[in-house]
C-alpha cells in the first residue's frame, strides 16, 4: 500500500508571529521555519502504518525552494520519496488541493494523510477539498487510525467527544494532535535522507491554475490586552468577583 503525505513549511510554532508595519502580512524574514506540527503527526502516522501493510510513503510540498528542507525532514523521519512543486507565490488550499488531486491520479495512493490545519493561515480546508475533488471519503481530526486491506476505520475528535467512521479506500485523513507523538530524526537517518529521491515540479507541469481567489487587503495586530492588576490574596480576589457580580 502507498501513502501520500502533504507537508507544509510554516513559521515554527514556538516563534511569536510579528505583523509587518506596512500591514501586508506577518514577517517571515530571518525567523525559524519548520514543518507544520500536524504534518509531522501525519508523517509519523504513515511510518507507523508500515507495520500494517504500507510499503511506500511519498511526501509532497507546494511552496518555495526552501520547502526542500521540510521534505528532507520528512525523509529523515522515514518517508521514502519526495515531490516539491515549486511556487514562490503562496498557493491557497483550493490550488493545493487541485495539485494534490493530480498527484493522486499519478501516484494512486491508497491513503492520503494531511494535517488538519496549517498553523500559519489556520484554514483547515485542504484535506476536505481534496476529498471532494477526488470524490472519496474523508475522515478529519483523526485521533486513531486502523488500517485494513480495503478500508480504514478512523476515530475523530469532534465537539463533545469522539466519533468513529469507516471509509473505503482510497481515502483522505486529516490528523489531530493526539493521534501520535512524532519521532525526531536520528543523525544517521538525516544523512541517509540526503540521498533519497526528491523530484521537482511546477504547477504548470500538472496543468493546474493556482491563481489566488482571495486578496489580502491588510493584516493588522489584534486589539492588545493589557495586563491588569495582581491581587494579594484570596480575600481580595473574592471581593473583586463580588464587585463584578460573579459571586454573591
Amino acid at each position: 500500500m502507498k501513502v501520500l503525505v502533504p507537508v507544509k513549511r510554516v513559521l515554527d510554532y514556538n516563534v511569536k508571529p510579528r505583523v509587518k508595519a506596512d500591514g501586508t502580512g506577518v514577517d517571515l524574514a530571518n525567523v525559524k521555519m519548520s514543518m507544520n506540527p500536524f504534518d509531522e503527526i501525519a508523517v509519523e502516522e504513515a511510518i507507523r502504518l508500515k507495520d500494517k501493510g504500507v510499503t511506500e510513503i511519498v511526501v509532497v510540498s507546494i511552496g518555495e525552494q526552501k520547502a526542500q528542507e521540510t521534505l528532507r525532514t520528512a525523509l529523515a523521519m522515514g518517508a521514502d520519496r519526495a515531490i516539491l512543486i515549486v511556487s514562490e507565490e503562496k498557493v491557497e488550499p483550493l490550488g493545493v488541493a487541485k495539485l494534490l488531486a493530480k498527484i493522486v491520479e499519478e501516484e494512486k495512493p491508497d491513503l492520503v494523510i494531511l494535517g488538519k490545519q496549517a498553523i500559519d493561515d489556520d484554514n483547515n480546508q485542504t484535506g476536505q477539498m481534496l476529498a471532494g475533488l477526488l470524490g472519496v471519503g474523508q475522515a478529519t481530526f483523526a485521533s486513531k487510525v486502523e488500517l485494513a486491506s480495503d478500508s480504514v476505520t478512523v476515530t475523530r475528535e469532534v465537539d463533545g467527544g469522539s466519533e468513529t467512521e469507516k471509509l473505503s479506500l482510497p481515502a483522505i485523513i486529516t490528523t489531530d494532535l493526539r493521534l501520535n507523538e512524532p519521532r525526531y530524526a536520528s543523525l544517521p537517518n538525516i544523512m541517509k535522507a540526503k540521498s533519497k529521491p526528491l523530484a521537482q515540479k511546477t504547477p504548470a507541469d500538472y496543468g493546474v491554475d493556482v491563481s489566488p481567489r482571495l486578496t489580502t487587503l491588510k493584516v493588522v495586530e489584534p486589539a492588545k490586552r493589557t495586563a491588569g492588576v495582581k491581587v494579594a490574596d484570596v480575600d481580595e480576589l473574592v471581593a473583586k468577583l463580588k464587585a463584578m457580580g460573579v459571586a454573591k
Partner: peptide
C-alpha cells in the same frame, strides 16, 4: 470582504474574495 484570524489570532487579515 471579511476579517479572519491567522497565526493563532496573532494577526487579523482582511480578505476579499473574487
Amino acid at each position: 470582504t471579511f476579517t479572519r484570524p491567522i497565526y493563532a489570532g496573532n494577526a487579523i487579515a482582511t480578505v476579499q474574495t473574487k
